[in-house]
Design a protein around this nucleic acid. Structure first.
Lengths: 111, 111
DNA sequence: CGGTATCCTTCACGATACTG
DNA sequence: CAGTATCGTGAAGGATACCG
């Protein structure tokens, strides 16, 4: 990829799009949990500190962005499962890259 | 890298650290601008919509996180230059990866 | 030029209660 | 179980004025 001035605007735009999708406070945590399919209540317990309201909201946003799929089983009591879409799966390498950089960052910071 | 349950906690923590550093509203835009050294006023003009207050604030945070270096030239009128630190430079591959994913995401969304 | 300081508004988020 | 609805608060951010 080039970095000349013509590409700067497009780079900006698309990097921002990515940040908007995964930059929310709980987004990466939710995506990580959904590396295996989980029910709503499981997610709630797996994310200490999140409220029901926030979990619902962030899941809806991820769903709207095509990252997460919501599977409703019409039964009593209700059962709803969440999983990554194929597009959501493509975020994994990005999360790994962010993990790698985070390691380096924390090392450098703690010196 | 593995993704067994033992690694999940560490992955989370460090991915979140990365998001905290570059997840701010203007952070990636500022970092992109600083791929070449720039003065305060140049940044202000390069980022339409940002306020002086926000630019100062985000630059200070990036400085505290070791991403950006602030170079003051003690002269009248004042001259202050900002540039990426070596650690800041290491963010470039991550921005490129985010760019790539953003391209894919926007393509899929516009279909 | 490159900032601070101050005030003000908005809204993200938490807490709580209720429901199919 | 998996939500929605409502209210309240604090912090983020904008607008404006001032300063070394």
């Amino acid at each position: 990829m080039h970095l000349d001035s013509k590409n700067h605007a497009r780079l900006t735009c698309e990097v921002e799009s990515t940040i908007k999708v995964i930059g929310g406070r709980w987004k990466v945590l939710i995506i990580r949990e959904l590396m295996t399919v989980k029910r709503f209540g499981e997610l709630l317990r797996a994310l200490p500190g999140i409220t029901q309201k926030m979990l619902t909201q962030q899941l809806r946003e991820l769903e709207d962005d095509g990252i997460v799929r919501r599977q409703v089983y019409p039964q009593i009591p209700p059962k709803v499962e969440y999983e990554l879409t194929p597009l959501g799966e493509t975020l994994k390498p990005l999360l790994y890259a962010m993990h790698e950089w985070g390691v380096k960052y924390l090392q450098q910071k703690n010196q």
